[in-house]
Design a protein around this nucleic acid. Sequence first.
DNA 1: GTAAATTTGATCAAAATTTATCATACCGGG
DNA 2: CCCGGTATGATAAATTTTGATCAAATTTAC
Lengths: 265, 265
Amino acid sequence: MLEKQRHQLLLDILDEQQFASVNDLSTQLNASEATIRRDITKLSKHEQLRKIRGGAEVLHGSEKRARRPHLSGTAFLAAKEQRADIKRLIAKEAVKLCEDGEFVIINGGSSTYMMREFLSERHLNVLTNSFVLAQELAETSDNQITLPGGELYRKQGIILSAFENDTIQYYQASKMFMGTPGIGKFGVMESDPLLIQTEQKLKKQADQLIVLADSTKLGKRSNFILCPLTEVDVLITDSEADPALVKYFESENIQVILVDVKRAE
Amino acid sequence: MLEKQRHQLLLDILDEQQFASVNDLSTQLNASEATIRRDITKLSKHEQLRKIRGGAEVLHGSEKRARRPHLSGTAFLAAKEQRADIKRLIAKEAVKLCEDGEFVIINGGSSTYMMREFLSERHLNVLTNSFVLAQELAETSDNQITLPGGELYRKQGIILSAFENDTIQYYQASKMFMGTPGIGKFGVMESDPLLIQTEQKLKKQADQLIVLADSTKLGKRSNFILCPLTEVDVLITDSEADPALVKYFESENIQVILVDVKRAE
DNA sequence: GTAAATTTGATCAAAATTTATCATACCGGG
DNA sequence: CCCGGTATGATAAATTTTGATCAAATTTAC
């Protein structure tokens, strides 16, 4: 049987039963459990089903991908495909660091946007300047969502918070997750000057700064320095990171978490 | 059986019986009591049921966690269909009052949400606490959009602006468009107490207050008074409005605009 | 009030599931 | 026909879930 065919049958079975175990599917589709698992993993990445322990379940109603992508023209949604699998793993690792009930801050960007998938089952209090992330979380999760006030910046799908006294200053979070275009010895970079102010304000409200940056971002320069390296507590990147740089980051008291590239497709 | 499946069945059983003992469930679901206890503990953490000694009971009504909040299912989107044609005409009339380049404020609600269609061709600067309107305008128009900071209130698809000093106070608009559940001699009403503060703050920043209310809203009471009638400058309603009431509003120096119901179909 | 019965939470070993790894089979292009 | 890439099945190691046991806490019966 062709892979495509098997996927279709698998989805058909799920539609009828709501749930299906790996074992069931393996029997019904004449494939090994390993293959079924790979199928489920792949299909869940394309949001055709939900992967649960022991098998899979259907997505009901609006979770299904009939939904049009929000603010489809934003810069990062276009760039989203690049290294998406690795960013997804990094995002997964980031969400793992959270406890339910915790207050966290998440900035805009493609890496942090990937966190949406893993946040959907969580119950956190999230402050984010990412309008598109807020949209996703509003529709697919029960997380409490807080937005800073400001102007919508369509190019990036985020909210620019221009004023001194705003919602942000009333928020106190234990962690801030920050995606960045580059991080190196000079610090964490930002390419868009309009964002710096908002992101610096966000950072100020969190106890701990966690940077998400795949290995291509390491040592990369960009236009502006957002903050020095000393303010970074944790860096999540992938296993292709230059070991010398990783050592350097660690010597700067940054906890470096590496996700395995090979696990990405 | 899969864990997730068992959880689902457990909740189904509970829905029917209101209460179920650990022993019962263990028999019905073919699982040990230890497992059932773990299930109950987990589900109660997610606020899907209440854990009580000896078993579990359902959560009724308001205790229940608002079910998966598809913003598309917010209260007003459900009510949207009611008198949609008339609301649409009222919204059209409202947008006609705007000049390109103007700064306007729009509150949340089904009437004002209808403005999206007519705003799509315009170039205004819009401040709105309606998250769903902001989404629409972001995707279908070039209007400059500003949002107040605050917490997302899924039930109404709006942002609750809880803090004194926030983005709103920096915004100065020539007009505010306000949808309301009722307007009468006592003033403009609001049914949801959580919204009053935000809407009053919004109102304060606009020179002119324009109320959108189809004829069924006229003379209708609701829970709370948002503002007295003296603060209303324009009322847009439909031709089925009680002429006596219209006269009264006009005598209070309110400009009443009537849209022809017959044009709606 | 005390004793008996029941329920609970904690602990731990067994069972099931997932992930990681590898050898093999398959496929289309040189 | 061989080669590189991909898909598959098998296996081992790591992780999670489960069921059983038991002491502690709570309720019920007397």
